[in-house]
Simulated scan of single mutants.
Amino acid sequence: MNTAHDQPVVIILAAGKGERFRASGGRQHKLDAPIAGLPVLQHVIRAVEQSGLQMYIVRSASGPGMGDSIGAGVAAVPNAAGWLILPGDLPLVQPDSLQRVARALATHAVVLPQYQQQRGHPVGFRRDCFDALAGLSGATGASAIVQARRRAGEVLDLVLDDAGIVSDIDSVEDLARAEAMFTRMQASSAIGEK
């Protein structure tokens, strides 16, 4: 993918081992665990498709850390207008949240979504963050980039009404909670359509 993009690309991080999930009693990788009959990762992919944004899925990286995965994903789509870093274990994230983070990158270098004062994902980075992101490695992710941009006054803390941005799957309990939330969301959506 070497064409220029006028919108940011969603980088879905799916290279982790999911060890905490298995340690909690999970029988398969957390991204393959079903919620309402679909694997966790498929729910994330569906949300990105519904948002209209392009995506790149990182299934392997040069190292085991989040920094390695982010660096690999960003380097794979270097001509994007920016990148939304989205862990593959957030099956309830809403397409509108992805669009809102993408739009906010028009005026800010970094966009940090929040739900009820909890930092969530996707974290958005504008094109001028490419060198720093593509050079990431190790376990720390992009926190140093965020801190540097915050000192420069280039970070937006974007409040969203979407529990899905903070509802990651790290244990079988998280999976059960996400399944219950998904069922409630489907029920309220069906009521809203009547």
Rank of each mutant, 00 (worst) to 15 (best):
L136M: 07
G138Y: 07
R22K: 14
Q50I: 00
S62D: 13
L84W: 00
V159R: 11
S60P: 00
A81W: 01
G73Y: 09
L105F: 03
R103M: 05
M1D: 12
G37H: 03
N79R: 15
D128L: 05
L31S: 11
P87T: 08
F130Y: 14
Q99G: 15
D157R: 08
Q94C: 02
V77S: 02
A33S: 12
D68G: 14
G71K: 03
D170W: 09
L133Q: 06
I169Y: 09
R22L: 10
A80V: 06
V44T: 08
I12M: 01
Y56C: 07
E19D: 09
L98K: 00
S62G: 15
R127D: 11
R103Y: 08
A109D: 14
A139K: 14
G73H: 10
F125T: 03
L98M: 00
L160N: 04
P64Q: 09
Q117C: 11
R151K: 04
A75M: 01
Q186M: 14
G63R: 01
R149G: 04
L31A: 14
Q42E: 15
A152K: 10
F130Q: 10
L31N: 09
I145A: 06
F21T: 08
D174P: 05
V159H: 13
L38W: 07
V159F: 11
A106H: 09
E173H: 07
V93Q: 03
P95C: 02
N2D: 11
A144W: 05
S143A: 15
G124E: 12
A134N: 05
D168K: 04
R184W: 10
A102N: 06
E173F: 04
E173A: 15
A144F: 04
T183A: 13
Y56A: 13
G153N: 04
A148T: 12
D32K: 08
D68T: 15
V44Y: 01
K17Q: 11
D162K: 07
R22A: 11
R59G: 01
Q186P: 02
D68P: 15
S189V: 03
H29F: 01
D89C: 00
H108S: 12
Q186R: 13
D174N: 15
V48T: 02
A75T: 01
G82R: 05
G18E: 06
A190I: 08
L133E: 02
E193W: 08
S188N: 13
D162F: 05
R22E: 06
V123N: 03
K30E: 13
M1W: 07
T3Q: 14
L98C: 01
A106G: 10
A75G: 01
H43S: 00
V166T: 11
A187Y: 09
V155A: 09
Y115S: 06
S51E: 02
L90M: 13
Q42R: 11
V166W: 04
D6Q: 14
A178I: 04
Q118P: 00
Q54H: 12
D131N: 13
